[in-house]
Nucleic acid binder design. Sequence first.
DNA 1: TCCACATTTCGATGATAATGGAAACGTCTA
DNA 2: TAGACGTTTCCATTATCATCGAAATGTGGA
Lengths: 229, 229
Amino acid sequence: MNLNRNVSSIASLISDPSRAAILLHLLDGRCHPAGDLAAAAGITPQTASFHLAKMAEIGMVTVEKHGRHRYYRIAQASDAEMIEQLLSFAGPAPVVSLRQSDQMKKLRHARMCYDHLAGEAAVRIAESLQREGHLQKDGLQLHVTASGERFFSDFGLDLPQLRKKRRAFSRCCLDWTEREHHLAGALGQGLTERMFAMDWFHREEQSRAVRITQEGKQGIAERFGIRFD
Amino acid sequence: MNLNRNVSSIASLISDPSRAAILLHLLDGRCHPAGDLAAAAGITPQTASFHLAKMAEIGMVTVEKHGRHRYYRIAQASDAEMIEQLLSFAGPAPVVSLRQSDQMKKLRHARMCYDHLAGEAAVRIAESLQREGHLQKDGLQLHVTASGERFFSDFGLDLPQLRKKRRAFSRCCLDWTEREHHLAGALGQGLTERMFAMDWFHREEQSRAVRITQEGKQGIAERFGIRFD
DNA sequence: TCCACATTTCGATGATAATGGAAACGTCTA
DNA sequence: TAGACGTTTCCATTATCATCGAAATGTGGA
């Protein structure tokens, strides 16, 4: 059985608590300098560097040099999704502080899943798109219907451009807090980017959490027929 | 962040090649004596016992004593599904022998996923059930429609009994070879059990693979409108 | 009662790998 | 050009853990 070789090598990357902390931190899709990741994981820069080199070797993260900083990020969306899935099986974290529970609430509400939106907001948007007939689920694919083509174009997305990207165009991604699907792939990324460009969302500092702005609430209500309190 | 504690502890269980081999062997849903698992993983009985104790402690496997044997099995269907999901991210195993590729082909065709059917056959059955309007996808749930109630009852399933079980009644499970969903939960288990009772399938020895019998091919064609070569 | 067999417990060993101190390397700033 | 800073490389230490031999436990069969 050579199956396990792959599985266990992936699992062993995540099994180290320090690496898990780093990966969880990188799950926001942002680039982070090595020092930040060390601080986030509670280890010295040397150790973090060691772990990052190991993860880069397997291709789980990639580096970008900018000045004297080296910015790391998760290389592939699929790896980020795998970690999100593991989270769903790990179960909800034991809440130790009020501050943490507050943070958790924000994460459940809306967060980044690498390069696209996740959380309750993302799931409800995906539901709305299907209900309105813009997207049609087909296995793990989310097929864009004719009305969907119009909808996304109106929304300001350049679908032909998105289709050109070397990644899945439109697919489901299992949301670990909602246990429902949200929209991922190039389309999910493009839609998220567009909504950020319209100032519907703001990133929180140092977190994957995303805050919905007033314009966002209004826009989401108008476009998707979803109301947030 | 206490999230990572959970994630990494789960990952570390799978990260050891011996444990991964054991878990992969247990993925057939059958009970296996400790000695068999040791042989399957290529380790001594002592070492296997050590690993099994560790996995039992976390609750990933459970033991049943029968005479001087101790039979181990994966405790929860959800854990089995998690491992299947990890497999889908690990990607297809490098094929080293013709024999293995042959085995792989069988696994893709039809296999057990813990306690329910998986592989191409299971995916196509799930598709058929939705196409015929017996099941309706709702997030990760597969809702049984009125016509579905009749269909499954005709098929010989006791739905009220299945609903009583302390587990999800009817849900999707991602098939790692087909990358589509198949039917899981109590309903998936019950349906699988019924089809085995009707001699539609036979388990292969020492493997998760499942063979479709002549009756099976006929029955599947009649009931689900699916034809296998 | 004795022996064979499956499994576990105990204990020792050896390998692996995470960790941080020291130092080197690049890059930015003054 | 010098010094501060982010990062990496080298290296030694340490802890963890998988592994297996030996022995104990428990069960079944003769």
